[in-house]
Amino acid sequence: MGTYENKNNLFGFLLILPALAVLGVLYIYPLIRAIYISFLWKGQLGLENYTKAFALYRKDIVYTLGITAATVIIVFAVSMVIASYLRFKNWKFLDYMYRLPLFIPFLIVGHAMRVFLAQHGVMNMIISRLTGIHRLPGLASQWLGLTLAFAWVLSPFAILIILGAFKAIDDSYVEAALNLGSNKFKVIIDVLIPLARPSIMVALVLTFVRTISSLTIPLMVGPSKPTMLPVDMMFRVNYYNDWGVANALGVISYVIVIGLSMYYLRFMVTERGGLKH
């Protein structure tokens, strides 16, 4: 009996071994190495890289957090509106259109948004035509432009997850609320959002992680100073060959994401403990 179980365990272990190996080589080893290098200063272990990173990039850390938070808020708002609308109404055009950015590479998004949000770009042209105001600022090199670019490219992922969760909620839960006198807005607040909370959390965590780790879009859209941490990391390596500070910035990003992940995991544990379907 014992031998049979041991064989079974070994077989199970062998099955997950390739995935473990990939995780080890591509994630755990580089992570440990990055953490190690971030503490390495002229061949000695110390906090100098972090001191320098905070001295040079304190504003960028705050800016990165601000842009990421603003993106998450806008993505949340947009995805709620579109997912709620599509939960109740079958509008094929919107259903296709919201997915469009999913198929556009980040580089193209960056370029398109630069053209769209420039001072004499498409957006200002349309606003000028509609309002008659001709002196409009270009958003392409401002934080708002960067946030809008992130929101445009990341909203479809969030909508896809949240709409999937909304559609998976049995119609009877929605109808029971309508039947008792609730309007559709109340149904969204009282029934759909609470029941889809785990999926909404996943969508927002993914949006946060993808925004904070994005390089291409902040390189092409938004101000050059302050800028986001991945851009700083790239410049630190490309222009100064300073792996220590670059890795320190990487670890700082990682700590922020880990903090969020801990919060998410705690939420999921509470959610599962409280809700047994």
Binding site: A176, L178, N179, L180, S182, D190, P194, L195, R197
Partner: peptide
Amino acid sequence: PPEKRNISMFFQNYALWPHMTVYNNIAYG
């Protein structure tokens, strides 16, 4: 619309909202 009819429906699968307590389920309407 259904919300303005004041007609109550009992659903075959009960449709009790799982995230609410019994009290809040009944209190909703």
